[in-house]
Design a protein around this nucleic acid. Structure first.
Lengths: 338, 338
DNA sequence: TTAGCGTATTGAAACGCTTCGACGATCCAG
DNA sequence: CTGGATCGTCGAAGCGTTTCAATACGCTAA
């Protein structure tokens, strides 16, 4: 492998000149730059990442800590990941993937200076990783919202507003008895932030809209969905509007409703909270509140890069929910308009 | 951040001694080792990854090039990824995630010495990435099988055997007209290796078992699946056995069959080729040939690490398919036993 | 003519680690 | 007792960059 010195020799300049051509941190005359670039080209030179990291304390790598936990929808995670990786490249960064059980990994990559920054997903209300990264020298942004962000930046869909929006939509269409088929019990047990925020918004809006709301946790399996639907229909038989906030269970919920002879879009209005492509790949195009996973991933990278460059203060960004009406929801017993 | 020199000073030894304690490459007396370890502990010392990479030409990072392409099942990809990440940690390595469009990324991470080795997924028959990594100094293993591996190691499910096994199963149960609902057209157009191998095995076995076989490409969408089922039933109405090799389309295929009044497990035998958990989370537990994605990922790491340590020759490992009978398949018109 | 300035370039000192050769001490065989 | 191994430790030379201070070279202004 050619080194920067080889390039310098080939171009007839000093090492530092080559470095400055590469980094653009100092003005270089056009002819010199051209000679250097030609030499780089000819030698197929690539700077050594380790040497660069050592000298500059910059690795051009960010860590992405992704869950792979039971109870979270894998395709949705992947959308976040895709957003992060794509956007990271725009900033000339690569992505080191850390998984769930890898809590020690946090220490390794931060203390070992393996990465310039971190993005963490699947944040719990009281997440043990938060104090760890808050103490690290690398800037971090959380996808999700812990109880105490300890000065870290956060980004997420505004699930509380989403909960309100969903109820408002159903109540406005004349439904008086609505329900949530939500996250799996494990997710709730972990106090995963999005699930709790969703429920809060839901309950508040239900109160102020004067509708009843029943909440069912739901495993992302066929049997889990069946059970949730059956329980719901038993405990709250007057329900005419369901909000499903569980990508994995969604198809099975619809299947169970169909099995029980309930026609979605007619007998029962269903609002899904999920990425649009998931909403569209159900048996019926679903009325849904979009979970813009890929966008959120991108925003996360934007935020963390901003902190890396300037000394921005930390911030929390909650994206406004957008509801798109499709075939799965319709006016309820009290008639349209609420 | 404490450096190795700080540790050496605190322990009253030389820098190199600390290094040898860390790496174990030279014998160190018990008392000295203890002193050094205490100092490390006290100072919270972590070696600087960049410095280490520079001095030792080892990064303890492997690159994972994962697709995120249209037409491949995201949950399945994630299982590969999980296997790779998990196993990599067993070898004290982290994983740098490269995505699809990142062909330049290959050059970046190899020439820039960012990684010690590579694992590449979603290999096409004539994959442009193969010559690139074959020329790189880092060992690489391919998950999949290109036409010419150019000396690289490969690992995958033996899809050709899987195709044979599926047909043998159906033919043995008395089915004389079988069909494949396979990968999306894009996947075929790319000459993705697993799809082609599957079809080859299928056709060969069909010939020698004396059964007819109809092949339908299939988009992983509800409409794609509907179309594939409808076309199949129109062009080969005598079909009583279907092999579905398309995780994304599977639920929709089953839904369409149900819509058309065809009872899977009675009127129609269906064999899925997919991870077991996917097979189990359908409306009926599916007879399936397991795609052990996570295992394959792990084996890939094992192989690449073996090449990294010793100077093993490259090898190709094709995992034998295993068919598990469940509720979706039954004897066909010619009666059980073939 | 010279002092002073700005711009393009250079030299050399880090950056934090690994590793090779060397060295002193201890041990055993002859 | 001596010569040669063996064992544990050390010193120093890299590894390939970046970056700071310094320099060289026109300029312009005085």
């Amino acid at each position: 492998m050619a080194t920067i010195d080889d390039v310098a020799r080939a171009a007839g300049v000093s090492t530092s000149t080559v470095s400055y051509v590469l980094s653009g941190k100092r003005p270089i005359s056009a002819p010199t730059r051209a000679r250097v670039e030609r030499a780089i080209e000819k030698l197929g030179y690539r700077p050594h990442a380790g040497a660069r990291a050592l000298a500059s304390s910059r690795t051009n790598v960010i860590a992405l800590m992704a869950p792979l936990r039971v109870g979270v929808s894998v395709p949705v995670i992947m959308q976040f990941v895709a957003g992060v990786v794509t956007r990271a490249r725009d900033f000339d960064h690569d992505v080191l993937l850390l998984t769930q059980d890898d809590v020690s990994g946090l220490d390794r990559v931060t203390s070992g200076s393996m990465v310039d920054a971190l993005v963490m997903m699947d944040i719990e209300a009281d997440d043990p990783r938060v104090p760890l990264v808050a103490a690290a020298k690398q800037p971090t942004v959380l996808i999700g919202l812990p109880e105490d962000p300890e000065g870290l930046s956060c980004v997420d869909l505004d699930f509380e507003a989403a909960g309100r929006l969903a109820v408002r939509h159903l109540a406005g269409a004349g439904h008086t008895d609505v329900a949530l088929i939500g996250s799996p019990p494990e997710v709730l047990r972990r106090h995963t932030s999005y699930a709790e925020r969703m429920m809060r918004g839901l309950r508040n809006q239900a109160k102020s809209s004067g509708v009843t709301v029943d909440v069912e946790a739901c495993d992302s399996t066929p049997s889990g969905a069946t059970e949730a639907v059956d329980t719901l229909l038993a405990t709250a038989p007057d329900t005419t509007g369901i909000i499903v906030h569980n990508e994995g269970a969604l198809p099975h919920v619809l299947a169970r409703l169909a099995d029980r002879g309930i026609v979605v879009g007619t007998d029962m209005s269903v609002v899904a909270v999920c990425p649009t492509d998931v909403a569209l790949s159900q048996r019926i195009p679903m009325t849904s509140i979009d979970l813009p996973a890929e966008d959120i991933g991108k925003v996360a990278v934007d935020m963390v890069m901003a902190r890396l460059e300037g000394e921005q203060p930390s911030e929390t960004r909650l994206l406004a929910p957008v509801l798109t009406e499709r075939a799965s929801s319709a006016p309820g017993p009290a008639g349209a308009l609420g």
